[in-house]
Amino acid sequence: MKKNDGNITIIRYVCMLVFFVFFGFRGYLDTDFVVYYPIYEATPTLSDTQGVLKFFSGLNEDYLLKVEPGFKVFAILLKSISEDYFFLQIVSSLIDVIFLNYFFKKYSPQYALGFIMFLIFSGLIIEFNLLRNSKAIFIFIYSLQFIKDRNPVKYFICNGIGLLFHSSAIFYFPLYFFLHKKFAPQLVWGAFILGNVLYLGQIKFITPMVVAIGDFFGGVYSLMAEAYSKDSLYSTGYGITMGYIEKFFTFILFYYSYNKVGEKIKDEKTLNIFFNLFFIFTVTYLFLSEYAVLIDRMTTLFVMSYWILYPYIYTLLERMFKLIFAFILFLFGTYKMINSNNNIIRKYENILWDKPTITRAYYIINKHLDKVLSPKK
């Protein structure tokens, strides 16, 4: 038994080390550095009192007004230790992997598989391009225990801290009141069927509401609503894609296995929490299909259900079916990694053995900006 425990411990350390080296020491990947590099450059150190006051007031640059105060404090503390932008990425990834280690140790029946699911399902975009959002997401993950224990004070304190890093954490606040409860099957399947009808029929119901609200307030709000509704970058849905097919069959698989997964988890509230997160994830994807940008932003907030439920599905399978599952996962994961990262701005560099430069990074993203911002097909 000790040998097994030792092997598991080694696996955990290896997973954490690989994660930390791969993400923490990455170069200038994707588009987030365009936002965070100038922010970190403008960040003062603790010794610069006047600079700190200006930093929080946003007098330096208008874009600083959009950065939440918690992240500003985080940036100031790190800048006071090191002025190198890569230090921000290193510490950020270290924090993330510590949260993931806690999460998978506590909830996943297959620790390493949990990390694999993280990478396949939104993990890359979370680490590469959601530096602030990721903190709100991981703090929410930590707070799930307080939903189960029915401890509102600790839950809202945690997500209040998350809100200081990214405003999207506001969507986690109402979850305390119902996430631990079992949703009625009629609600689950009814919403799933309706969502598919709206998605496949490309029936627009959000756009009229957005336009109506914009017209009601008038002025700049009306212009913004009209612009977002007509701009294909924001308002184009995905249609029938590999992602849709995966989500359709995953939904059926998960809910078909609900009772069997419950026998493995052996705690009704924990079972409900992850299935309800998955339900919200799927419904959000289907109902918000007319706004591609909303699909990306909103579903990522609830994707952690995949990281836990798929490993549980794996444990339910017989040996032969586990091999089939692993083969399908390998094919799908390979397809998704290639499809998602077949872009010059995702060309991986690591500061331990490469020499990435900010000048070259800006040149690449400016040259390929149109392709980066083009709607997904």
Rank of each mutant, 00 (worst) to 15 (best):
V34I: 13
F33Y: 07
L144M: 07
K2L: 14
I245E: 12
N159E: 04
L175E: 04
W307D: 00
I245P: 06
F156T: 11
K105F: 07
K72L: 10
G24I: 04
K106P: 02
F56K: 11
E68M: 11
T299F: 02
K264P: 03
Y310I: 15
G27N: 07
I206C: 01
Y228H: 00
S222Q: 12
F25K: 00
F74M: 07
S340L: 09
D149W: 07
Y238V: 09
Y255E: 01
L144A: 05
F330A: 14
K182T: 10
F205A: 06
I81R: 00
S122Q: 14
K336P: 02
I203R: 07
K182Y: 05
F56D: 05
I273A: 08
N343W: 02
D231V: 12
F183Q: 01
L277K: 04
S289P: 13
Y258N: 07
F156P: 06
L65T: 10
M320V: 14
S80I: 06
D354G: 06
R346Y: 15
V14F: 04
Y363I: 06
K106S: 04
Y256H: 14
Y199R: 03
K204A: 11
D48L: 03
D84S: 13
L323Q: 11
L100E: 13
T282H: 03
F248Y: 08
V211G: 12
Y335H: 11
V220W: 03
D354V: 05
P38E: 11
S222M: 00
P375M: 03
L286R: 01
M320Q: 14
G195Q: 06
Y102L: 09
K377C: 00
K54A: 09
L131H: 06
L163Q: 10
L369M: 15
P38F: 10
L223C: 06
D370I: 12
H166I: 12
D370F: 09
I193A: 11
L331I: 14
V35M: 08
Y176V: 09
L323W: 14
Y256E: 01
I95L: 02
P375F: 08
